[in-house]
Write a protein that binds this DNA or RNA. Structure first.
Lengths: 192, 192, 192, 192
DNA sequence: AATGAATGAGCCTTCATTCAT
DNA sequence: TATGAATGAAGGCTCATTCAT
């Protein structure tokens, strides 16, 4: 391993350890000691790569943000709204399955960090809703309040996600669930 | 004020102060010092009324739970499903408007407390979903997975609620929003 | 019960409760709350009868002191030294059997109280040794250091007492044990 | 001083400070603040070397135990019982003279610590008595209750020790005092 | 770059004592 | 005399961060 690789390695190990700890116990309950123990790195080393405890958290959230953004880029390439939303939901659920820890952080570590990070989080959520809203409008749907429709859709998706994260043992199928929420969104629940 | 009244008053002041602090900064970041400062009460007094910091928190969450349960009882008295769901959503939004702090605790202080409280929270969420699921089934809707429909509905409602709590300055109308989610749930978004 | 009796009753109940608590957990570990709980008396009442926590302790030790003193008075009435010492040892052991709690306080709560009480304790111990020393001298024994003989005797007696208190389940016979230490004191252990 | 040496030094300074404080005021009255002040070390450092306040105490008592045990080993090498007991008493007194603080802890901090430590203390005392008892039996003395003889001997020795610790200004001579208690044990006090 | 010993501010909790009723 | 709510100083312990090596 080259010197440069070794360096990246330590930082990655720290990010990895932090991600798992934050997911398990939340931001405040996680200690730097625990992170460095997990990463098999000396305590001082942590402060070589991160300004403080908050900054490693921020870096993880930014990672999540990048994934959200790339999800949106891909969603845009689908042609009609139904496909886009299906893609978004399925992509979101899959992202979750692959990154349960990260998702858990995004979903539940909302408060408890400093003001700037809180705003960052709100922006992240707003970003999701706005992306969907734009797609709805672009698709030509004439709604009094398109934002609300977006909110509702994202709400369903996130709640499915949250329940998935909280009940990891329940069966979960990204395709079927994405289908379900998209159908509901367009047609409502099937009549009796 | 009688001695007994004074006593009740002190406890209420503490509950009130705790509620606001938890809502502002979450459980871990809130200090007992801050709570007693807000309540204008000596530190020792806090421990006269609560076993420890966690127990005030628990008491607040139980308050929330009781409101949820009474909401369900009232919902049951409506006659058809549409009315029930409308009632639930509207009631939930109003409850929120009156108890923004409490709701904030319920929505965002998920992690960061001890294991028993976490389970309590999960139970609370499950309770909401199950209540709706039962109503859907009782109404005679034949769905492959009624739980998912309930999940989707509660998801929409909660997400509206969350955004309301996070953006307190945006206009918010319990009736209109409840109408919106119920319509969406039954009919999907209006066609172009 | 007369008014005066009632008063005495409360004070006695407090003394009693304190005695038991001090014996169980020592002076520092015992809380005033625990004492008043045991005595079934309000907290404020404690401070009606005692200046502070230390003073109830002092009162108990003084009780112990009075019993020691009366033991000495009785011992003096015996005619020869052997009888005196036998009487002292037996009396001490019996006193212990009847007042195990009090004895426990005397034996093990040595430190942990303020300087004045510590001196009081030392005086109490010194008193025992000196009483015996005087008797030895009065009996006409010519020893280079009569104090040491007294020390040795009191040491044996106290150690028997301590072991009795610490191992309450072991059989304990005041008469036999008193006989044993007195014989040892005068004749040494029996030859092989 | 090397890093490793510095570390050992800090721990030793803490042990030393703790020993003195415990000896002066007992376990409960001693504060961690006081210990770290004495050791000229930051408060956090204390918890680097000891799990909690109780654990320093335990470490000191274990030190005492090791000394007792090594005393017994040496005692065993003497050939006849009289020499053994003389050796034991003298060794104990000397140990005391060198470690007055430690001894003080052993003699007077009996209660006031948690249950496990209390048992540890009782074991320590029992250990002394049993050691002597075995020696008496091994020496061929036929006694109805050899344990009582051992108890009496240890009692004398400990009481001499206690008085020495409590009255540090009185002259104290390990050899003479050891001689005294051994003679008394074998022959009783000299006749008039 | 890497280490891990050292720091001390900050937090939760206990408890002896006071005081209004 | 009796009560028990109220107080706040004091103590044990944690943990993010620094710094000498």
């Amino acid at each position: 391993m080259s010197r440069e690789d070794k360096k990246r390695d330590k930082k990655n190990r720290l990010l990895d350890a932090a991600r798992r700890s934050f997911a398990e116990k939340g931001f405040r309950k996680t200690t730097v000691d625990e992170i460095v123990d997990r990463a098999q790195v000396a305590k001082g080393t942590f402060y070589l790569y991160f300004k403080n405890k908050e900054s490693v958290f921020k870096e993880l959230v930014e990672l999540l943000e990048r994934r959200y953004k790339s999800l949106r880029e891909k969603m845009r390439q689908e042609k009609d709204l139904e496909d886009k939303l299906y893609f978004f939901a399925k992509g979101y659920f899959s992202l979750l399955e692959d990154n349960r820890d990260l998702a858990r952080i995004g979903l539940f570590n909302f408060d408890h960090v400093d003001e700037s990070l809180k705003k960052f989080f709100i922006r992240l959520q707003t970003f999701q809703v706005d992306s969907i809203k734009e797609e709805i409008i672009a698709a030509g749907f004439i709604l009094e309040e398109p934002r609300k429709a977006a909110l509702a859709f994202v709400g369903m998706v996130n709640y499915f996600a949250a329940h998935y994260v909280l009940n990891p043992d329940r069966p979960f199928s990204p395709e079927k669930d994405a289908r379900f929420v998209v159908d509901l969104f367009f047609k409502g629940i099937p009549a009796k």
